[in-house]
């Protein structure tokens, strides 16, 4: 079985995140890493590969530094990596990202399962997987908190806010996984050494036959009109409980008409 895992390189949520003058995410100075939510997708792919027989390819689209996301996935145990790196993709929105990733999945060919995270930790739109399914014409089986592949069928559990559903589709399919599905492994020393010898290909838009005019900031179907840092919430009153803390809380809530 051929599994492709889409992984994204994102700015570290713990660092100071900011924007460029053109309102795109500033990605140069901040430390980046493999999106933590995509580690669950890598782990799930590895678990499937270990239980049966599968080749796991990780696919990322992003700047030079995004190679780190591929590397980390290879260290965890993925077999090979593909990095789409092209100046023209800077500033791409979800629509363009899905266009490029779909073209790459087509080029890889013979893919049985496309795995993604539940959302990227920077944009958190959670729309790329659905867009990929739409573009590739594949079944969409998303937000899996449990996943099993049996022969040519994939089956997942999906927990929504009003119901829990079991969803089934035949392969090939696009599946996104949540952070409930597994516990991602840390790369072992052996994994880190082995990763150095694993093949990584770098593709440009031309390799994919995608026109540069279809992607990037200029081609985005949405624009950011303005962006403003929210004034940091100022700290209100803090009381230390010395026997009357609960009463003070009740008084605050009453004064604000919550009680």
């Amino acid at each position: 079985m051929n599994i492709v895992v889409c992984v994204k390189y994102v700015p570290d949520a713990q660092s100071e995140r900011s924007f460029e003058p053109d309102n795109t995410t500033e990605r140069e100075s901040v430390d980046g890493l493999l999106s933590e939510l995509d580690e669950y997708a890598v782990e799930e792919a590895l678990a499937i590969a270990e239980a049966g027989d599968a080749e796991v390819t990780v696919l990322t689209m992003g700047p030079e530094a995004a190679a780190a996301a591929v590397k980390k996935s290879l260290q965890m145990g993925a077999h090979k990596g593909i990095h789409i790196n092209d100046e023209a993709i800077a500033g791409s929105d979800a629509v363009a990202t899905s266009r490029v990733l779909a073209a790459a999945i087509d080029k890889i060919g013979g893919v049985d399962l496309v795995l993604t995270g539940l959302g990227s930790t920077d944009g958190t739109m959670s729309v790329v997987p659905a867009m990929l399914a739409e573009r590739l014409g594949l079944p969409q089986v998303t937000f899996a908190s449990e996943l099993s592949v049996d022969g040519g069928t994939v089956r997942i559990r999906r927990d929504g806010d009003v119901a829990s559903e079991t969803v089934e589709a035949s392969l090939p399919a696009v599946v996104s996984v949540t952070d409930q599905i597994n516990e991602p492994r840390y790369p072992s020393f052996k994994g880190i050494m082995a990763a150095k010898k694993k093949p990584v290909e770098t593709w440009s838009l031309a390799d994919l036959g995608v026109d540069a005019g279809e992607v990037g900031l200029g081609a985005a179907w949405t624009t950011v009109v303005s962006i403003e840092q929210r004034p940091p919430r100022s700290q209100g009153e803090i009381v230390t409980d010395e026997g009357q803390g609960g009463a003070a809380l009740a008084e605050f809530l009453t004064s604000r008409k919550f009680a």
Partner: peptide, 17 residues
């Protein structure tokens, strides 16, 4: 980031409130 905070044990504070 709070408008109001109580430093204390939640078991005591919430039940008194």
């Amino acid at each position: 980031m709070v408008d109001f905070g109580v430093v204390g044990d939640l078991f005591q504070v919430l039940s008194q409130a």
